[in-house]
């Protein structure tokens, strides 16, 4: 028995290790059908995408209270909503961070932040982190544009909001807006995936 210990230990370390590197490889790709969800909004009500009867689609954005990059984009997220919600694409913001790993991302703190910033969009708490896992979100902020096609919601854009997180004045490429403009014009999205630096989502169980 004593002899086996190092072997068992090694195996469990290896198992943990391989899990750590494969956990978030899944997730939505362009063209996938996005599943609906039911999450609690900061006003206490449960929100699903099917509740938005007139929406042509959604700007689903994984974001949070605590990440400096997410904060830098709060105002730009509000502007996106104000510009595109009337055109049928509201912002739906989702905070997926684990409260234990990131106490500043609790539901109460979300309510506070939403009040301070007067978010005009739903700010939902993905407490179980299931929605973020299903989408394959890795960071905040992380945008998924969904477009209604018949009864389904197709993923039509994944990525960043624009090309300059630090300085809104110096933005040259508004990636999410460009994708939405393509979609609203009935055209294929020209640049359907983009990358940006962001804070890694604080998963439950991670140190």
């Amino acid at each position: 028995m004593r002899k086996r210990y190092p072997f068992l230990f090694l195996m469990s370390v290896l198992a943990l290790f391989s899990f750590a590197f494969t956990a978030d490889e899944a997730g939505y790709q362009l063209g996938d059908t996005a599943a609906d969800f039911k999450l609690k909004n900061v006003n206490g009500q449960m929100v699903s995408l099917k509740d938005y009867k007139d929406a042509k689609g959604f700007i689903v954005t994984f974001t949070c209270n605590t990440c400096p990059y997410a904060k830098l984009y709060e105002d730009r997220l509000i502007q996106l909503h104000q510009k595109y919600a009337p055109k049928g694409y509201p912002v739906v913001a989702i905070n997926p961070n684990d409260v234990t790993a990131s106490p500043g991302d609790s539901f109460e703190e979300m309510q506070k932040r939403a009040r301070q910033k007067k978010f005009p969009f739903a700010y939902l708490h993905d407490e179980s982190q299931e929605v973020a896992r299903k989408y394959g979100a890795t960071r905040t902020p992380h945008v998924y544009v969904l477009t209604r096609t018949g009864n389904e919601l197709k993923v039509t854009y994944i990525g960043a909001i624009d090309d300059n997180s630090g300085d809104p004045e110096k933005v040259q490429k508004r990636y999410t807006e460009a994708a939405l403009d393509n979609l609203l014009a009935g055209k294929p999205v020209q640049q359907a995936t983009t990358k940006a630096i962001g804070c890694t989502i604080k998963w439950r169980g991670d140190s």
Binding site: T138, K170, K195, T200
Partner: peptide, 20 residues
Amino acid sequence: EPDQNAWIPLVDPSWSGAIP
């Protein structure tokens, strides 16, 4: 390099941009 989309894929195509 503020235009992160331009260089993130050069580091690794699989990198979504989350740090660390």
